[in-house]
Design a binder for these strands. Structure first.
Length: 214
DNA sequence: ATATCGATTATCT
DNA sequence: GATAATCGATATG
């Protein structure tokens, strides 16, 4: 077996609290099958959304047609359209019947970088251009051609899917935790998880963070 | 470096 | 009718 093999994560991985899934997703790989190519990128920043008890979560007001994936079986893609412009990707957590999810906020591209640039409609001239490919929830969806029509409710635990999450053996060192970005309700809770020092992490640099040994 | 603003639409009040 | 888990551009220190 080649060292570069990527193994899908089992469904049980996602059948836990979003906080636990968030920590453990850092360093894992998002895989996309697109036009016969494989795009891969490492997960370097995520946020936990806790379900009906979390005022900032889409599930806060109970089950609706839009957020029903969050209440379904774990390990599925919940994709929503925001600000009339952008898609955002989550993976459903908790056992079926209970809401919860993890928002993907930033990735570090590993392979298929030219395809990502094409999908974003940008050219790569500088290191900054590379960072902007997948740094931010809207950007990473554009780079991976993720849309609600095509990918909402996709099963992210099967390597047969066109979108899935795997483990390539990478083990992150320290992780950092901070408040979530871009929300107005329950804005103070430390539910954003990222790899400190990774240049692909979104938002202002050196945002208040509590480092933790993993 | 931070601040502010316009774009543009699904969803809910 | 208001809001939103954002981005890119522009303005200002």
């Amino acid at each position: 077996m080649p060292v570069s093999a990527i193994q899908p994560l089992p469904r049980e991985f996602f059948a836990r609290k979003p906080q636990r899934v968030s920590r453990d997703l850092l360093g894992k790989v998002l895989v996309r099958k697109l036009n016969g190519q494989r795009l891969t990128a490492r997960i370097v920043e995520v946020e936990a959304y806790l379900g009906e008890a979390d005022p900032a979560a889409h599930a806060a007001a109970g089950r609706t047609p839009r957020n029903s994936v969050l209440f379904g079986p774990p390990g599925h893609a919940y994709i929503y359209f925001i600000y009339g412009n952008h898609y955002c990707l989550n993976v459903s957590c908790e056992p079926e019947g209970r809401a919860g999810g993890v928002l993907f906020r930033a990735l570090e591209p590993l392979s298929g970088i030219e395809e990502m640039a094409k999908a974003r409609g940008v050219e790569l001239h500088s290191a900054k251009d590379l960072v902007r490919l997948t740094s931010g929830p809207g950007r990473l969806c554009a780079a991976f051609c993720i849309t609600r029509d095509a990918d909402n409710n996709a099963d992210l635990t099967s390597s047969k899917s066109t979108l899935w999450i795997g483990d390539d053996g990478f083990r992150s060192g320290k992780i950092a935790i901070s408040p979530r970005i871009g929300i107005t309700k329950a804005a103070e809770h430390p539910l954003r998880y990222f790899l400190p020092g990774n240049p692909f992490v979104s938002g202002p640099k050196f945002r208040a963070a509590l480092d933790k040994q993993v």
